[in-house]
Computed example of a mutant assay.
Amino acid sequence: MKKVVVIEALKLALEGKLYEARAAADSARQDAIHEQSAAETQYDSLSIESGYLAEGQSERVEQAISAINAFNETYSLNTAEHVVEGALVQVSDEETTASNWYYIGPAEGGLKIEIGSIHVMILTLASPLGQAIAGKSLGDEVEFNFNNRIQYLCIENIL
């Protein structure tokens, strides 16, 4: 796994989210000001609802821009010695021998990208799993309580 490929894929995914948010905001704004949205009676609230939707979609655009800026400030191509923000981490589950890749990011936790047959998920240090593996080193074992079930994880790789 090459970290530079993951970072480029993450940038594309974040830019895609921004594009979608802008398109939704533009559409909501057009709906809010369209002549058919004008209230015909005192009980007609279509234009008000459209305005609220446009405002919410504009907030999504701002959040997407903030996430992109946060990633641009924190990503690093250097290999990390510990699990820190900007690290690409491979974690294995000792019971199922499953292995998962996580990019430790500043925002957008849960966003998934696929590189070939490998799935990488953004994990923030504020998440429960992020808190459990924060600061760990290569080969460290982690005890993680997931749905009242203890899982034993191992840090397999840190890039």
Score class of each variant (00 low, 15 high):
Met1Cys: 12
Lys3Asp: 08
Lys3Gly: 11
Val4Trp: 05
Val6His: 05
Glu8Asp: 13
Ala9Leu: 10
Leu10Arg: 11
Lys11Val: 11
Lys11Pro: 04
Leu12Lys: 12
Leu18Gly: 03
Leu18Pro: 11
Tyr19Thr: 14
Glu20Gly: 00
Ala21Gly: 11
Arg22Asn: 10
Arg22Ile: 14
Ala23Glu: 13
Ala23Gly: 04
Ala24Ser: 14
Ala25Pro: 08
Asp26Glu: 15
Asp26Lys: 11
Ala28Lys: 06
Gln30Tyr: 06
Ala32Asn: 09
Ala32Trp: 06
Ser37Tyr: 06
Ser37Ala: 15
Glu40Ala: 08
Glu40Trp: 07
Glu40Pro: 01
Thr41Leu: 06
Thr41Met: 08
Asp44Gln: 01
Ser45Val: 13
Ser45Leu: 14
Leu46Val: 13
Gly51Trp: 00
Leu53Trp: 06
Ser58Gly: 15
Glu59Gly: 02
Arg60Lys: 13
Gln63Tyr: 04
Ala64Val: 00
Ala64Leu: 06
Ala64His: 07
Ile65Cys: 12
Ser66Leu: 06
Ala67Asn: 09
Ala67Thr: 10
Ile68Asn: 07
Asn69Pro: 01
Ala70Pro: 03
Tyr75Trp: 02
Leu77Cys: 10
Ala80Arg: 05
Glu81Phe: 01
Glu81Lys: 14
His82Tyr: 05
Glu85Cys: 12
Glu85Trp: 00
Leu88Cys: 01
Leu88Ala: 04
Ser92Asn: 01
Asp93Thr: 00
Asp93Arg: 02
Glu94Tyr: 00
Glu95Thr: 09
Trp101Arg: 02
Trp101Cys: 06
Tyr102Arg: 05
Tyr102His: 13
Pro106Trp: 00
Pro106Val: 09
Ala107Met: 03
Gly109His: 04
Leu111Tyr: 03
Ile113Pro: 00
Glu114Ser: 10
Gly116Asn: 08
Ser117Asp: 11
His119Cys: 06
Val120Met: 10
Ile122Ala: 04
Thr124Trp: 09
Ser127His: 11
Ser127Lys: 05
Pro128Leu: 02
Gly130Asn: 02
Gln131Trp: 03
Ala132Pro: 07
Leu138Ser: 01
Asp140Leu: 00
Asp140Asn: 12
Phe144Pro: 11
Asn147Arg: 13
Asn148Gly: 08
Ile150Met: 11
Ile150Thr: 12
Tyr152Ser: 12
Leu153Val: 08
Ile155Arg: 01
Asn157Gly: 00
